[in-house]
């Protein structure tokens, strides 16, 4: 039996769907040919490994993300996604022009410092529009309980009693009435979880925060490679990678996409560049939480 023929039959052999005389011929060949024998054993092990592979759990935020996108797609004539627009002849030129301009900017920037390559593409040819921000002033204060659980104290301030709900993923973790200096203690976070906390006020989202499940003491300079992420996803990645809380206030353009490559820079530098490109204002709360406000 030729090795080539043997290899074609390996799967059938393992599944025992092969006729006995043919199987016997394969045994003979395997006894003589070390490489075919190794091939057979290799495929067998691989098969076993895949049979034992564990199912992965989707991220907590996946469900709400799906529903958000589905609801957004509901109107009879759905707004075309930015990549669909890019391929319509009318817009292709405009998008190419924007890309060309940004690429030039990024490239010339890159010759100065190799650390970050950041490009932002806004969808549909419309610029990122300034957002009228009406916010509920908030402050996040992380602390560790005696058991080592990470908790978040959320302090909110409203001029008149306002009904507020704090949602993490698809679950409401706190709701109540906020007046002067109201404090909410959010539930414990299991190690490795990233909380996506939304304060829903008057039915609209005004605040989102990415709170890594541990507060890192040392200065991290992680390598980051992100492609075609929304602004929120980009900030979520950065919060996780650097191990610091980030808070976004206001509405950002959902069509904007960010490409980011960083070979490892300090957090301050990363945030400064990002704020510039995404037109966000950086400020710092008393507890050290970085707050980014969409203009």
């Amino acid at each position: 039996m030729r090795c080539e023929h043997f290899r074609e039959l390996i799967s059938a052999y393992i599944e025992r769907s092969i006729a006995p005389p043919l199987a016997a011929k394969m045994d003979e060949h395997a006894a003589e040919c070390a490489s075919c024998r190794a091939e057979l054993e290799g495929v067998r092990e691989l098969w076993q490994m895949m049979a034992e592979a564990k199912r992965v759990e989707p991220p907590v935020s996946l469900h709400s993300r799906i529903m958000q996108e589905v609801y957004a797609s509901v109107p009879a004539a759905p707004a075309p996604r930015w990549w669909e627009l890019a391929w319509r002849p009318r817009f292709a030129f405009a998008v190419a022009a924007v890309l060309a301009l940004l690429a030039l900017v990024v490239w010339s920037y890159n010759t100065q410092s190799n650390a970050i390559a950041l490009s932002v593409v806004s969808g549909g040819g419309s610029p990122v529009s300034p957002v009228a921000v009406s916010t509920l002033p908030t402050r996040f204060e992380p602390f560790l309980t005696d058991d080592g659980d990470l908790r978040w104290m959320l302090k909110m301030n409203a001029s008149h009693p306002t009904s507020v709900e704090v949602v993490a993923g698809a679950q409401a973790v706190w709701s109540g009435s906020v007046a002067q200096e109201t404090t909410a203690v959010l539930p414990a976070v299991p190690q490795g979880t990233v909380l996506d906390v939304r304060v829903v006020w008057d039915g609209s989202n005004v605040l989102r925060a990415w709170l890594p499940a541990e507060i890192s003491q040392e200065q991290r300079k992680p390598v980051l490679v992100l492609k075609q992420r929304s602004i929120e996803e980009t900030l979520a990645h950065i919060a996780r990678a650097y191990g610091v809380p980030l808070v976004l206030v206001g509405e950002t353009d959902p069509l904007t996409r960010v490409n980011l490559e960083s070979t490892g820079v300090a957090l301050d530098e990363m945030l400064t560049r990002l704020a510039e490109k995404l037109d966000l204002q950086i400020s710092r709360a008393e507890d050290g939480t970085t707050v980014l406000t969409a203009r």
Binding site: W83, A86, A92, A96, L99, A100, L102, A103, L104, V106, W107, N110, A117, S119, V225, K227, Q228, E261
Partner: peptide
């Protein structure tokens, strides 16, 4: 297909890491 076929200006391509696998 979309992410592979997107028309990037050649300058920008230099910044991207070579090959999907490494990325």
């Amino acid at each position: 297909k979309r992410s592979k076929g997107r028309q990037h200006v050649s300058l920008e391509e230099q910044l991207e890491l070579d090959g999907d696998t490494l990325t």
